[in-house]
Write a protein that binds this DNA or RNA. Structure first.
Length: 505
RNA sequence: GCCGCGUUGGUCUAACCGGUUAGGACGCCGCCCUCUCAAGGCGGAGAUUACGGGUUCGAUUCCCGUACGCGGUACCA
């Protein structure tokens, strides 16, 4: 059997959004699972829609997600060039074959003439107005015009396109790996443009020629291509080439399920759609990426993999290597899937929890300049250990640990009212004394000390500890207090306690 | 309009060739743990498997129809 080769072939019309990234991921997983090649090709046949920086952006996004193409743009390979705008000669050569076989033809109709034709057909109540076996005979093309006139038009440099000649009353049957057999009648297909008047091929043509020349064995792409697949099949037949296997992925829909996920919809729902930050070169509009929003690449990969694919059992957490091992096209769902940012957050939290302690410590050190002066590495690690399980994003560490680096400036009046009672101040004063006399200022002894005082006074823990927490951290909730006090140290803890006592005694 | 694809709790999904109290996860709620919050553990609510027919002893699973959703219908990909 031939080596498995798949490709991801985006067009450089802006930042690649998360749906495209998922398509790339599924191609990558499938290639790696089968020890095949993953090829990155750029489909830049529409110069009008070209957006500066798109290609670089994609490469950076892949780098972040650790998706490594084996071949393609920026990497090279035996089947280059991998950018369609650099393959014009190749398309020319192949379109000539079709022309010679009389399976494609020149068409000289102007856009206005095409419009008129469609309008005319609409008025005549034709179900699907199109340039097809019937209507082409009323148009200006090399099938209707005398040979010498065609020749003359071509020589005079008149604008033309080349269209595929779709046969009448045939059925095109193909098997989609995800959806099964699909049957489409050629009568609903139109004579798609293969070569545009600017000399560039259309997607339909370039895609087939390139896939064949690049020895692509499996075409894994979005569902939006399903309706035009028969045209592609027809081209394979015309060239007498072996068809690749097709697999059309379900689309990613907006959270409310109405329509494809778009930047607009994501903005509204308050989450990113792009892997990385992007600034529109024209409008200067900035879009935030998953990376910059604090998402981990592993989490995004895992989430995306599960968006439409499942392993068949109850497992959900997968590293990329496990995904590669388990992935299969057969287990991809057919239905469109709604994007749920809450689930992404959950994945992120799961992966964050599993991160090495050093990650958290280093983050604190870089983000909080005083961290290094105030605490040893060991203590910083203890701080992180105390708080890391409650983070969704690494950046949450800043707000969660704030009280370790800053004394409370004021105390929330509502909390004071709720927590302060007649026993609070005297008990707190005793606790301060007890702390002061502790030789080993460590969590277990600290706990023992305040527990004993509370017990002696026959008070409930809940009456005193929240006030103590408020005095020490300025907050009404947080991690184990004895550990917090230990980390802060005797001096700092007593200062905070004294300050509180000064305010309320 | 026409063509294609789809439809299992709010969301993502499982259920091999038809026989399960329709399983799991996210989210939500509750309990335990705890001074508290989070994490964790335990539990709960939530699905007449879009609807209607058929085939069958039996249909989430097979067939047909309807509805709804999505996609396509460009010299865009």
């Amino acid at each position: 059997m031939n080596k498995i080769r798949v490709r991801f072939a985006p067009s450089p019309t802006g930042p690649q959004h998360i749906g495209g990234i998922r398509t790339a991921l599924y191609n990558y997983l499938f290639a790696k699972k089968n020890r095949g090649d993953f090829i990155l090709r750029i489909e830049d046949t529409d110069q009008k829609r070209f957006v500066e920086g798109s290609q670089k952006y994609l490469l950076k996004a892949f780098e972040w997600l650790n998706i490594k193409p084996d071949e393609g743009i920026n990497i090279g390979g035996k089947y280059g060039p991998y950018k369609q705008s650099e393959r014009k000669d190749i398309y020319k050569k192949y379109i000539d074959i079709l022309l010679k076989k009389d399976l494609a033809y020149y068409a000289f109709d102007t856009p206005q003439e095409l419009d008129e034709m469609r309008k005319r057909l609409q008025e005549a109540k034709v179900a699907a107005p199109q340039y097809n076996a019937v209507s082409r005979m009323t148009m200006k093309n090399s099938l209707t015009l005398p040979k010498d006139e065609v020749e003359q038009k071509l020589n005079s440099g008149e604008k033309y396109v080349i269209r595929i000649k779709v046969p009448q009353k045939q059925s095109i049957k193909f098997k989609d790996e995800i959806r099964g057999w699909i049957n489409i009648k050629t009568d609903v297909l139109d004579d798609k443009v293969l070569m545009k008047s600017d000399g560039m091929p259309t997607y339909h043509f370039a895609n087939v020629v390139d896939d064949h020349l690049m020895k692509i064995t499996h075409v894994i792409r979005g569902e939006e291509w399903l309706p035009s697949t028969p045209i592609h099949i027809l081209l394979y037949k015309y060239f007498e080439w072996e068809e690749p296997v097709f697999a059309h992925l379900p689309l990613i829909l907006k959270p409310d399920g109405v329509g494809k996920l778009s930047k607009r919809a994501a903005d509204q729902a308050g989450f990113p759609v792009f892997p990385l930050n992007w600034i529109d070169p024209e409008t200067k509009e900035k879009s935030e990426g998953f990376k910059e929003s604090g998402y981990l690449p592993e989490a995004i990969i895992n989430f995306l993999a599960m968006l439409g694919w499942s392993p068949g059992d109850n497992r959900e957490l997968f590293t990329i290597d496990q995904l590669i091992k388990e992935f299969s096209l057969e287990r991809i769902n057919k239905a469109g899937v709604k994007f749920d940012i809450k689930k992404v957050n959950w994945f992120n939290q799961e992966y964050l929890k599993r991160k090495e302690p050093i990650i958290f410590v280093n983050y604190l050190k870089t983000k909080i300049p005083t961290a290094k002066e105030k605490y040893s590495d060991k203590l910083l690690e203890e701080i992180c250990d105390l708080l890391k399980d409650r983070l969704i994003f690494l950046k949450d560490l800043i707000s969660e640990t704030k009280f370790f680096f800053k004394k409370p400036i004021s105390y929330d009046k509502k909390l004071i009212k709720k927590l302060l009672n007649e026993d609070s101040i005297p008990t707190l004063m005793k606790i301060a004394d007890a702390f002061d006399s502790l030789t080993f200022f460590e969590a277990p002894y600290i706990k023992e000390a305040f527990l004993k005082i509370i017990e002696d006074k026959e008070l409930k823990l809940g009456k005193i500890l929240p006030v103590l927490r408020l005095a020490i951290t300025g907050l009404g909730s947080g991690p184990d207090l004895s550990k917090v006090i230990y980390i802060l140290g005797k001096k700092e803890s007593l200062e905070r306690l004294d300050k509180f006592l000064d305010s309320y005694k």
